[in-house]
């Protein structure tokens, strides 16, 4: 079962993703801030990180940079409420582009498609 970490500072959003992805058969963990996410990524291993770009404190791009340091290959889906994250210099430098980004509000099934695309079903 693929393990997904969801990082978002809004509880209602975390709860929706938790319910939906659990129903889809994923093992879901939650982080409520950037630092929480980094701690959890360091403590555990995940197949995927679904992350809000804009959280208080540590920003999304920093989480990704931290994650790089650990050299754990984690698939990433970036969620954002802003308009042109795909042109963000920080993200582009880290190798992320439009294919890794979903704009809020996100259709849950669209999110599911993206997850399946990035995480081939485990044998």
């Amino acid at each position: 079962m693929s393990k997904i970490l969801i990082a978002d500072d809004e509880k209602t959003i975390r709860d929706i993703f938790l319910k939906f992805l659990t129903l889809q058969g994923y093992e879901v963990s939650l982080a409520e801030s950037g630092s929480d996410a980094i701690a959890k990524l360091n403590a555990d291993s995940f197949d995927m990180l679904i992350m809000d770009l804009m959280m208080p404190g540590i920003k999304g791009a920093e989480i990704l940079r931290e994650m790089r340091k650990n050299k754990k290959p984690v698939a990433v889906i970036i969620l954002t409420g802003s308009v042109d994250a795909e042109n963000s210099k920080d993200l582009n430098e880290l190798g992320y582009d439009a294919g890794d980004i979903l704009y809020k509000p996100v259709d849950l099934f669209e999110l599911l498609e993206a997850i399946k695309r990035k995480l081939p079903p485990k044998a």
């Binding site: 959003i13 929706i16 802003s82 809020k104 509000p105 996100v106 849950l108």
Partner: peptide
């Protein structure tokens, strides 16, 4: 977009 996300979800 955050409330919209919540509403849609």
């Amino acid at each position: 977009n955050n409330p919209l996300m919540v509403i849609q979800g």
